[in-house]
Nucleic acid binder design. Sequence first.
DNA 1: CATGAAATGACAGTAACTATCAAAAGCGCT
DNA 2: AGCGCTTTTGATAGTTACTGTCATTTCATG
Lengths: 212, 212
Amino acid sequence: MNRMTAARITSPADRPQLSLRERKKIKTREAIRTATYALIEEHGYDATTIDQIAERAEVSPSTVFRYFPTKEDIVLTDEYDPIIVEELRNRPADEPWPDTVRYVMREAARAGIEGDPRAARLRSHLMVQVPAVRSRMMESMSVTGRMFCTAIGERTGRDPDSLEVRVYAMSLIGGLMETTLYWGEHGNQQDFTALLDRTLDVLQHGLSARNP
Amino acid sequence: MNRMTAARITSPADRPQLSLRERKKIKTREAIRTATYALIEEHGYDATTIDQIAERAEVSPSTVFRYFPTKEDIVLTDEYDPIIVEELRNRPADEPWPDTVRYVMREAARAGIEGDPRAARLRSHLMVQVPAVRSRMMESMSVTGRMFCTAIGERTGRDPDSLEVRVYAMSLIGGLMETTLYWGEHGNQQDFTALLDRTLDVLQHGLSARNP
DNA sequence: CATGAAATGACAGTAACTATCAAAAGCGCT
DNA sequence: AGCGCTTTTGATAGTTACTGTCATTTCATG
């Protein structure tokens, strides 16, 4: 099962060239995340405290905060952005912009979900249920939005800080956000990529005739 | 200076028919808000604590929490939504939907800004500077988004809970959010209504030829 | 192995909330 | 005006996320 996509989630064992220190860091990071996921599935988000997480991950609470600025950040790690950036750069410069977006978002979604489907599902449920997580997700997606602004700037020669570009990017982000929410609300039953396609249709063409 | 718009910010003195209790409630609510605004302008958002707010407003900290669930909510009161709902209902049913949106959003913006320009400006600055406030604003705007879903459902007969309608609404919200941010980042120099128009142009027609 | 740098843990502190309960204030009735 | 009844308030104690600091441990390097 060796998939060949550009960016992959890297496990500490995969990289012997990294120093022991670096490998340990990756390990504790993973330990904290794993502990958090497990505890949340056992007791729910709010009932899970940092102290519990620290205890199960066998680190001190201080360390937890050193690795993740907030509790929400523990569940919301964003490995997406680097993927998106790379995919954006790899697309042919003459590809129509909407096609680029569609392709890149599909890849990011695929990587995010296939990389760890269980975590992806948990995240989407937390987004639905826990306002703080949802908020944090929005913040993080708006960073992604700024990246899109830059990309649009490079592609079209527009000013990436112009109102128009920024509004375009954030409306895209808003749509994507709602798609994720929708997916989570419906128990992750539907194929996320299919939802994504419908979303991008709406964003491109507005609410046109066919859709229910 | 008696303007005749539907919803107005009501001062306690304006309504003698309200019971003493109700009038007092409005008064303390206002006192808390006023104290908060003043303190934030003096010392900044983070440096302003609930205890300070309570002290200046001459109530107990408990009372502050009774009136506002979170610190962010104190600065972000949403009187917008009721206005939007009412304006939406008042529009002729056969008006093209984009026109309705434009009209309603203009009215809401006008009410929000003219009602208390100083507060509006402070809010937009806090949105730019304080992540927590920005997050809370997004949450509150996504509620507004759900209202738009309902309105779209009534207008077009679509299922207001369908992915398409929800995505459309949230992309609208995303765009509006970014507009407010942009306005705040640029020191509230520009006419907000003009920005709003440009935003709605982008949302309707995408990034087309003319804009910089 | 010795020396410097980075990571960790322990500790103390802050501030936003939550829960509870008794005191106080407005309300309605006579 | 006085008296129950309900609502609002304040005081108090507790929880938890998060910050800052400093000594100790752990790794890197010559």
